[in-house]
């Protein structure tokens, strides 16, 4: 049986450079080893986790992979960056099973929506009518189940509901209505108490 097909990883911002070069290498120590190849998905994992400061769960949603897969990509990225640092090797950023997602914009003059594939160029005008009245636009994500069937936090006292923020435990949220702690709606409840009875 063949392996399961790898899910393509979504890249929001491709890197602006193609790699890194070390400087000041001792000529005697100069190793014949080649460069380290950092994949696009590993670059994106580093960017989301360490540059943007997202947690693994939030970052995995951004890349459209599962949380454990994101953790594996991130671990591989750290391993490669460390290898390049310690051994003084070059690093190239290329390859990987990825697709690029562009940001969408809306033209207020001709009522069209357009994507912007060349990220390095600034957006100045509508590609269709040339109007400068453009605004950012977010397409509703149709394929992302996580977005549609969102979990909810519920107040244990007054039953106030709010949409659960991924990465923030419900029990740390405070109800804005009555100030009590919240819990996950339809969650498993207090499992600890059940365990004691067994």
């Amino acid at each position: 049986m063949s392996a399961r097909i790898r899910r393509p990883r979504k890249i929001l911002n491709p890197p602006s450079i193609k790699g890194f070069k070390p400087f000041g290498i001792d000529p005697e120590m100069k190793s014949s080893k080649g460069s380290v190849n950092l994949l696009f998905e590993e670059y994106e994992a580093l960017r989301l986790r360490d540059y943007d400061g997202l947690n693994h769960h939030q970052a995995s949603l951004m890349m459209n992979v599962s949380r454990p897969t994101f953790t594996r990509i991130y671990a591989a990225a750290l391993q490669k960056v460390a290898t390049a640092f310690v051994e003084g090797r070059q690093m190239t950023i290329e390859g990987g099973k990825v697709y690029f997602d562009s940001d969408w914009h809306q033209c207020n003059a001709c009522e069209c929506y357009f994507s912007h594939p060349h990220k390095q160029l600034p957006i100045e005008e509508c590609p269709l009518c040339g109007s400068k009245e453009i605004s950012e636009f977010d397409f509703p994500e149709e394929n992302n189940q996580m977005q549609n069937e969102r979990d909810k936090c519920i107040c244990s006292q007054c039953q106030y509901e709010q949409i659960h923020q991924s990465g923030v435990p419900c029990k740390e949220e405070v109800c804005p209505e009555c100030g009590h702690f919240m819990k996950r709606k339809g969650g498993p409840g207090r499992r600890g108490r059940k365990m004691k009875g067994i």
Partner: peptide, 20 residues
């Protein structure tokens, strides 16, 4: 469609959607 949006993005082809 959902399948060709990423394809066109990686080919650097601009998409314009007119709902009217």
């Amino acid at each position: 469609g959902q399948k060709i949006k990423p394809m066109l993005d990686s080919m650097h082809i601009q998409m314009v959607v007119i709902k009217d």
